[in-house]
Design a protein around this nucleic acid. Structure first.
Lengths: 130, 130
DNA sequence: ATAAAAACAATAATAGTTATTATTTTTAAA
DNA sequence: TTTAAAAATAATAACTATTATTGTTTTTAT
């Protein structure tokens, strides 16, 4: 079992902030937004808690090719799309888990606990602009 | 159309090296191996060519949560598994592309050109050891 | 209230990667 | 087969994202 966490104002603010956002902010964006309410919060605290929370499965970490990680306060099964043009990350609401786990169990003999599926290409808005 | 690349010994060596490996080395590992044959090759050259080649689709870049990127000389449709215990990255040979693109086309209106699916958990070897 | 554990802010340090610059290599045309 | 432009290089500096350290503050169970 996981050790219980002690309450902290900073961690609660991070979770609350993520829940208000649909756009998967980076650590830096979380930090600069939280500073409005908690002027003394430090960037290290933001990183530490984002890692802690994603390790515990309370939020999702989204890694896109070398750029800064993005974080998602919603953990229900869904996937992400990263636009090569504007760099934005958006949700794709679908659940392939069963399908994927069925198939992968025929092809792999380790223990799979997670999967992340990231799409990339050009988003609707950027297509229009061009 | 993509501009043609000028030939370079260094780039060729990088491609050749990746084709000999099934274990998806990082830039650093590519670099230290190539130095045996090309003692003057620089790490910047390795990074530049790995990025160039993956942008052109000649190799694959595999990003796992903040750690160094891994590269794969084989580009046929297949997926990857990253072990939380030993950090190794291995192949999962299956192709879900059609299935996935079918489903995602119902759920997204941008232009998707790629997807990457990364599994994680504990690999066969690490399971045995524990 | 108090003491141990946890979390913190501030900041230094690190890892991975990209940019700069002067030099060398490649390639196509004279 | 020289030659000149374009591309690629090595060396190295710089940068970005992230983690580690340290001394202080906050939380929580007693």
């Amino acid at each position: 079992m996981q050790p219980a966490l002690k309450h902290s104002r900073q961690r609660e603010a991070i979770i609350d902030f993520l829940k208000t956002r649909k756009d998967h902010p980076t650590a830096d964006i979380v930090y600069s937004n939280l500073r409005e309410d908690l002027p003394n919060i430090s960037l290290g605290t933001v990183y530490r808690n984002l890692s802690l929370l994603s390790d515990r499965g309370e939020i999702l970490r989204i890694s896109c090719n070398g750029k800064a990680d993005h974080f998602d306060g919603f953990t229900h099964p869904h996937y992400h799309f990263s636009c090569k043009e504007c760099g934005g990350v958006s949700d794709i609401e679908m659940d392939l888990s069963d399908m994927i786990y069925d198939k992968v169990s025929d092809n792999f003999d380790g223990q799979i606990t997670e999967h992340s599926l990231l799409f990339s290409g050009i988003c609707h808005d950027c297509l229009q602009t061009k």
